[in-house]
């Protein structure tokens, strides 16, 4: 059994309000939302062990400060990151714009090695400002996965982290086992011409929705859990 230790950075704008990245992490790690928990732990660095198939993966989630004045400090945190979870607020379009800028920056600083998930948080709220089509198209164009999450309603929180971790794992293990990969081509794994491996999860998501929004389709996430597990 192999062991892995992945670093995931958590990015989210702070302007008028918060996008809820802290609640999201806390929900994931403690599986409890802020309303009820009495907690003394900090939510800036969290570690959790996940079982993915026969692999044990430890992920360290690094929170970053979202204030505009600290944006220049980002690269210090991205260094050696395997994944990034970009959180925006579905009720605030500006935070989505900011998330897009982050994607650009991540690609510039870390390159294609970093696996990105974009999470539209507060998806339990009615007054959405960001349309599903917009995000789906955008996510697809940058090779990221998009999910609608709600820390409050505990929707898609585990899935967001789990899916990100799986994709990191797949990306990491694809390099040494290319031959194995080629052998499996028939079973539905696609290798695109830039040799980037499109995961089963991704390909199905792309295929099904033309976009990648899984937020309101719990069924899809269920399957997702099994497919790599």
């Amino acid at each position: 059994m192999s062991r892995h230790n992945f670093k995931i950075v958590l990015l989210g704008e702070v302007t008028k309000g918060r996008v809820g990245k802290t609640s999201l992490t806390l929900r994931f790690v403690k599986n409890s939302f802020d309303d009820h928990q009495q907690s003394t732990i900090q939510a800036t660095y969290l570690q959790k062990e996940l079982r993915i198939g026969d692999k044990t993966v430890t992920i360290s989630v690094w929170d970053t400060a979202g204030q505009e004045r600290f944006h220049a400090l980002g690269p210090i945190y991205y260094r050696n990151a395997d994944g990034a979870l970009l959180v925006y607020d579905v009720t605030d379009h500006d935070t989505f714009i900011r998330a897009k800028n982050w994607v650009k920056e991540l690609r510039k600083v870390v390159g294609d090695d970093i696996t990105i998930t974009i999470a539209g948080n507060k998806s339990d709220m009615k007054n959405r400002q960001v349309s599903d089509e917009e995000v789906a198209e955008y996510a697809k164009s940058v090779g990221a996965v998009h999910l609608h999450t709600s820390a409050k309603a505990n929707r898609n929180v585990d899935e967001a982290f789990l899916d990100l971790t799986k994709r990191i794992l797949e990306k990491k293990s694809s390099a040494p086992s290319r031959t194995e990969l080629l052998g499996k081509q028939n079973s539905g794994i696609i290798i695109d011409n830039t040799e980037r491996r499109v995961t089963r999860t991704e390909s199905r998501m792309y295929g099904k929705n033309g976009g990648i929004s899984v937020a309101d389709e719990p069924k899809t996430t269920q399957e997702q859990k099994q497919c790599c597990g």
Partner: peptide, 21 residues
């Protein structure tokens, strides 16, 4: 610092937004 933040607001676990400044 986390202790200070938690004392001032026991309900909320401090995140990086509060901590880094």
């Amino acid at each position: 610092i986390f202790n200070i933040l938690t004392r001032s607001n026991p309900k909320e676990s401090p995140g990086a937004d509060a901590f880094l400044p």
